[in-house]
Amino acid sequence: MEKEHLYQYIVGIADNNLVLGQRLGELCGHGPSLETDIALTNIALDLFGQTRSYYQYAAQLSAQHQTEDDVAFLRKEREYRNVLLVEQPNTHFGHVIARQFLFDVFHYLFLEQLLHSKDDTLAAIAAKAIKEVSYHKRFSSDWVKRLGDGTEESHQKMQEGISNLWRYTNELFEMTAYENEAVKAGIGIALSELKQNYYKEVNHILEEATLSVPESPYFQKGGKEGIHTEHMGYLLADLQYMQRTYPNMNW
């Protein structure tokens, strides 16, 4: 696989972690209890740790002698290729948990396959990350059940989170050109093969949580091609603020 294309493939994976970590970072200090605050921050730290490993690898592959921070901070909005799901705002805790859960289930299935990538570096990153993500999935599934099967109010809010974010789930399995190429090279993951297990697992937890599985056949996509929701620009404005205002400095 061409270096430049592998670079694009890796960045596509890493952007999900970066953007979701950024959203969780906004919450630090504002959670419903100290204990949940600490737990969500641990998840954010795991995601940033993983994202750094990916970006460091990508930076090595880049022709322009980039650093992990160049990759993370200095692209235009159209060049970020995270799925739309992870950039959705922290509307309320029901949304936070729904977003986390819907991503975690995918993330775990994805890493399970990435373990077998022919690319040794990616396989090694996956081996470390999968333990972390296994815990994320356990944490978010538990909370989906607690809120779904808790009070009437929490049931309604959790359902709202799932129903609102459901339209972004299908994009998780969309394949870009780089991804198709990576699959052919034995490096990447054929996402469509994860789809059945994903919905099976998600639906099972939702059922346990007494929540209904949304039935709308309409989905949104675009993030993986760099076409984001209106939220993304503001997220990047925060993320890139220092690097854009004070270019070419060490921090």
Partner: peptide
């Protein structure tokens, strides 16, 4: 400043500190 930390290394350190 967590969302605006200027590098990934600083962001992780600040997040860990606030945690």
């Amino acid at each position: 400043w967590i969302t605006r930390a200027p590098s990934l290394r600083r962001k992780a350190a600040l997040l860990a500190k606030v945690q």
